[in-house]
Design a binder for these strands. Structure first.
Length: 415
RNA sequence: GUGGCCGUAGCUCAGUCAGGUAGAGCACCGGGUUGUGGUCCCGGGGGUCGCGGGUUCGAACCCCGUCGGCCACCCCA
């Protein structure tokens, strides 16, 4: 990180700037995400980056960490309380309700999310998520498809050592009975619990299960998966069977509960095992059949996920040294500069990645730049131009030949 | 929000313990090779040592504050 000079302006705490070539990886991640979303049949959903605070307060849950202390909330000039979105699911559901769409709907989104917290690697105040929502279906096949989506995304971005941690937290009716049990258990062990855990006994007892400070105590605690109703139980079994059909490995983690209130039944996280716990969760999702109602819509079953792009790129093995140009045009004779410019323009129109120097420089310097820019080839415009030829050099092998300018595209295809 | 470590050139860092007005490698630019990169050699540009204040004849170095980064907790993406 570069430090600011005197009056220099710097970015806000917990935000990042991403420049090339590092941003090449972001571009690639975005392309893979969009491509995957299209292959899976998810249409693009655009929603505002801020909402009326109420959308998240109600949607995410009043007693969640996110709403209690992480929201970027402010009052705008019209005296409305608005909040920078800490996640997108509540927004997408709000949008669906507002546009009056009902029935099956598959949508994908990509963009920045905001949570006010102490930054650390893989945990920023503005971070990026790509996610999909599968709305209007209570079928376990929808759960399986969404889980597969995230798994393939991580596969295509070459994230090693991914584990799918899977659990079911049941339906609200199952949870009422369960809540009484977990509360009683926690009360009985109250003296051994961390302070934070004790505070949660009344507000959100289930979340004590994944508190790292309380792993010992919680080992013997009752877990939601043992308290599923018949319907939720069957749903979960079908989801597991569906994953097996697709050869998607998973581990059932009966302590996995997620931090947002709207989930029911299936919940899961993708864990990058190469990392410590702090930022090993690179994505996660769950079923949220109750959210439409919470936000004032008609009850609609739904399942969705969010992938943490920042963390995924930290874990990804996608290399940086892929070629970023097909051709770098080297101008030998300044009198041919305009011709070279036109050649660059035509090649670009033909879909080829091309660049050249914007000022006169030595041939050596231009070749150096071609190399530094990770170009596949260098095309020399010099004396040979008068015979309607250019010299094209393969920068990896050093081989070069004389070809006509129109043959460049073909040369690239053949190499 | 709590606790700890750290901030010197674009990057990675040395110099801080024993105060005397800044260094290396890499990167960048130019030349050696007046039309050929990735190797080599030579040269060059670039820093009021994160910022502010204090102590001192003198501060990158000592003290205080502040901003930022990293790590753990918390929680999650």
């Amino acid at each position: 990180m570069t430090e600011p000079k005197r009056d220099q302006l710097v970015r806000p705490k917990g935000t990042i700037d991403v420049l090339a070539p590092e941003s090449d990886r972001w571009r690639m991640a975005h392309r893979i995400f969009e491509d995957l979303a299209e292959r899976f049949g998810y249409g693009l959903v655009l929603t505002p980056m801020f909402e009326h605070t109420e959308v998240f307060a109600r949607g995410v849950g009043q007693d969640t960490e996110v709403v209690e202390k992480q929201m970027y909330t402010f009052v705008d000039r019209g005296d409305r309380s608005v909040t920078l979105r800490p996640e997108a699911t509540a927004s997408v559901v709000r949008a669906l309700i507002q546009s009056g769409i009902s029935g099956r709907f598959k949508g994908a989104y990509w963009g920045p999310m905001f949570r006010y917290e102490r930054p650390q690697k893989g945990r920023m105040r503005q971070f990026y998520q790509g996610g999909v929502e599968y709305l209007g279906s209570e079928s376990p096949e929808a759960d399986v498809e969404v889980i597969e989506f995230g798994y393939r995304f991580l596969e295509e971005l070459r994230v090693p050592g991914v584990e799918v941690h899977l659990n079911s937290i049941g339906d609200p009716t199952d949870r009422a009975a369960y809540r009484a049990e977990i509360t009683a258990f926690l009360r009985a062990h109250e003296s051994d619990l961390s302070r934070d855990a004790r505070k949660r006994i009344d507000t959100n007892p289930m979340r004590v299960l994944d508190s790292k400070a309380d792993t010992e105590v919680v080992k013997a605690a009752p877990v939601p998966i043992d308290h599923l109703g018949a319907a939720a139980k069957e749903h979960f079994e079908t989801v597991k069977a569906g994953l097996e059909v697709l050869n998607i490995p998973y581990v059932v983690d009966d302590k996995l509960v997620r931090g947002l209130d709207y989930y029911n039944r299936t919940v899961w996280e993708y864990i990058a095992t190469q990392f410590d716990a702090a930022h090993s969760a690179v994505g996660g999702g769950g079923r949220y059949d109750g959210l439409f109602e919470i936000l004032g819509g008609t009850p609609t079953p739904a399942v969705g996920l969010a992938m943490g792009i920042d963390r995924i790129l930290l874990a990804s093995d996608i290399p940086l040294d892929v070629p970023s140009l097909d051709v770098f045009v080297v101008v030998v004779d300044e009198s041919l500069r305009s011709e070279a410019r036109l050649l660059v323009s035509e090649l670009r129109s033909g879909g080829i990645r091309v660049d050249m120097s914007d000022v006169q420089r030595s041939v050596k310097a231009q070749f150096k730049e071609a190399d530094r820019r990770r170009s596949i080839s260098a095309v020399v415009v010099g004396d040979e131009w008068n015979q309607d030829n250019v010299t094209i050099r393969d920068l990896a092998t050093g081989e070069q030949s004389l070809i006509g300018p129109k043959e460049i595209a073909q040369w690239l295809k053949n190499r």
